[in-house]
Computed example of a mutant assay.
Amino acid sequence: MKKLITLAVLATLTSLGLKAQDNFEIGIRAGANLSTIRGEGSGSDQGFWDSEDTRSTGFTGGLYTRFGNKFFVQPELIVSQKGGTTTGLLGVERDFKQTYFDIPVLLGVKATDVVRFNAGPVATFLINEDNTFLENIGITQAEEGFRKALLGYQVGVGFDIRSIRLDMRYEGNVNDVFNIDYDDQQTENQFSGKGNSFSITAGYAF
């Protein structure tokens, strides 16, 4: 995982040398994530993943680059806080929040000089795990618990107003947030859940 992150960082930093070329942009963006996890809950505890529309609020922000004009490619290096809520057998809610390193690679099109649309895959790497949460639900340090790397997708709309960049996005996971491998398939299904989030950010193009 560290090698993948290092290669991604080096690739993005290398692109900085192209700044002098036309149709290249680099900037920063930051804002808030509203995240949750949804699962089928087919185990004995059917309500493990909270079925209510509660979302965890966290920070998201980092560096982006953009290549192109009407049609563009936008790789990013982003730090994001994501989490969710679980409900146990006795109705006890447990919240968790942890930090991820996201690498989206978005393809986009500008509808006007101001409005643009973008979508693409995102690789997500866990860099700060909520171990207290794992202990509270009975997962020991010897077990994997949260998955260390996730694959997902992002879709959204953006607005370019001079040097200001505003973005609204939805992100979904392809694989489960937990990496549980129990002999009991019913118990394993209980913990199956995929994350999703909405984010709103403001940025600045240099």
Rank of each mutant, 00 (worst) to 15 (best):
L4C: 08
L4D: 14
T6A: 15
T6Q: 14
L7W: 05
A8L: 14
A8V: 13
V9I: 15
A11E: 09
L13Q: 12
S15V: 09
G17M: 09
L18F: 10
K19W: 03
K19C: 04
A20N: 09
Q21R: 10
F24G: 08
G27A: 06
G27C: 06
G31M: 07
L34Y: 08
T36A: 15
E40A: 13
G41A: 05
G41T: 04
G43I: 01
D45C: 10
D45Q: 11
Q46H: 09
D50L: 08
D50T: 01
D53P: 06
T54M: 10
T54S: 13
T57E: 05
G58F: 00
G58N: 01
F59Q: 08
F59W: 02
T60F: 01
G62D: 06
Y64A: 11
Y64V: 09
G68Y: 04
N69R: 04
N69M: 00
F71N: 01
Q74S: 15
Q74C: 11
Q74L: 13
Q74Y: 05
P75W: 00
V79K: 10
S80A: 15
S80P: 11
T85G: 02
T87K: 14
G88N: 15
R94D: 10
F96T: 05
Q98P: 07
T99K: 13
I103G: 02
G108R: 05
K110G: 10
V115Q: 06
V115H: 05
R116V: 01
F117S: 09
E129I: 12
N131Y: 06
N131I: 06
T132P: 14
L134K: 15
I137V: 14
G138V: 01
T140H: 05
T140S: 12
T140F: 02
Q141H: 04
Q141E: 13
Q141Y: 02
G145L: 03
R147Q: 06
A149P: 06
A149N: 12
L150I: 03
L150F: 02
L150H: 10
Q154A: 06
G156S: 05
G158I: 02
I161V: 12
I161G: 10
I161F: 07
S163D: 14
L166K: 04
M168H: 03
M168L: 14
M168C: 11
Y170E: 08
E171R: 10
G172K: 00
V174S: 13
D176C: 04
N179K: 13
D183V: 00
D184F: 00
Q185S: 07
Q185L: 03
Q185A: 07
Q186L: 02
T187Q: 01
T187V: 02
N189T: 00
G195Y: 03
I200M: 11
A202I: 15
A205C: 14
F206N: 12
